[in-house]
Simulated scan of single mutants.
Amino acid sequence: MVASAVRIEELQRISAAVRSRSLRMVHSAKTGHPGGDLSSTDILVSLYFGAMRAGGTWTNAEDRDRFVMSKGHCSGAFYATLAQAGCFPAEWLDSYMQPMSMLNGHPDRNKLPGVEANTGPLGHGMPIATGMALAAKISGAAWRTFVLTGDGELQEGSNWEAAMTAAHYGLDNLTLIVDRNRIQQGAWTEDTIRLEPLADKWRAFGWAVHEVDGHDHAALVELFHRLPLEPGKPNCVIAHTHKGQGVSFMMDRPEWHHKVPSDTELEAALKELQS
């Protein structure tokens, strides 16, 4: 599929809206993870509005595609995307992380439409998604499973147990997207526990791997429409991104993993995103 210029412009507009809304949510709640929200937004938007059968009338359909937000701490961008996709009313976003809100800091499938799995403890999403994809294979279902992880999250061993399982069962209906922004809480990933050569590691585990600019909607949409990358192998998409993408003073700054913008910073960030 070759995405049209008009379609890409619409995805860019949606991404800007998601980034702006997620920042306002974090600012209002006085807590959150804005850096990762901003790095993952273009991936989320490309999936929900360019590739998956999900959201809107697909939200509860049996043959919908499944998406697992393994990096559940970046719930601001995830919730804003779900609202844009019609999973629930946009005004619900105003209750983000408030007492008794359905919009917890970490997604809860028992509370919010469109959430497929409870996530937050890192390393859980990949095993859940692997089980989903295996269930689809066993039942002969055509729906696909996508899972988004952080790169620092890959330091959790449960991901690699799931990786072996997915390759063993030939789950080419499973797609892992790694938000490769190279920053985790407090430091750069390579200064914490080195991940590189990351692509080679996934290939060694029996996965088909493709690296892509995680902020290029056209490249992301075209890639998602080419899946599976290799029949009989699960798909690993390493999406190269920037923490704090779209806001100059947040980009590639480790402190914005969980820093909350002040009133002045929020105003400046929204002005950049709307320009």
Rank of each mutant, 00 (worst) to 15 (best):
K201H: 11
G232R: 07
D37E: 03
P113Y: 09
P89Q: 02
F49N: 03
A141K: 13
L266S: 05
E190F: 14
H257Y: 12
G150C: 09
H124V: 14
K71Y: 09
P261V: 07
T175S: 10
V209D: 04
F88Y: 12
S262A: 05
R19K: 12
G105R: 08
A117C: 13
R13D: 12
L23W: 02
A90P: 04
Q12A: 02
P89K: 05
M250T: 00
D263V: 13
T149N: 14
T165L: 13
G120Q: 02
F88H: 13
L23D: 04
L38T: 01
D172N: 08
G244F: 00
C236P: 01
H33G: 04
S95G: 04
G140M: 09
H210Y: 01
E230G: 13
E230I: 15
G152D: 02
P234Q: 10
M126H: 12
G157W: 10
A187W: 14
E265I: 08
V115G: 08
L148K: 11
G246D: 05
H258Q: 13
L103H: 00
G32V: 03
V212T: 07
D191F: 07
L176S: 04
G152Y: 02
A3S: 12
F249W: 05
D108W: 07
P197C: 07
D213G: 06
F205C: 10
V247T: 06
V68M: 09
V209E: 02
S262Q: 02
I177R: 02
P197Q: 11
N118Y: 07
R144A: 06
R66Q: 11
R21D: 12
A162F: 11
A187C: 15
A141Q: 11
R7N: 05
S40Q: 09
H27R: 15
H257C: 07
A199K: 12
R180G: 04
R7C: 01
E156W: 04
C87L: 01
Q12L: 05
E153I: 02
G36S: 04
L273A: 09
G186S: 10
E196H: 14
R13F: 07
R64N: 14
E116H: 14
G72D: 02
E153D: 13
P121V: 10
A269Y: 10
E91F: 08
E91Y: 13
F224W: 11
Q184W: 03
A129V: 04
A29H: 02
L270W: 10
R64F: 11
G170L: 10
V221Q: 07
A80S: 14
S275K: 12
M1Q: 14
I183S: 10
S275H: 14
A142S: 15
H217P: 12
N235G: 12
I177K: 00
A187M: 15
L223G: 05
T145S: 12
R194P: 00
A85T: 00
R194S: 06
K111E: 01
E10G: 00
G123R: 04
G32S: 08
V26E: 08
F78Y: 15
S22V: 03
F49R: 05
K243S: 15
P99R: 04
V247W: 07
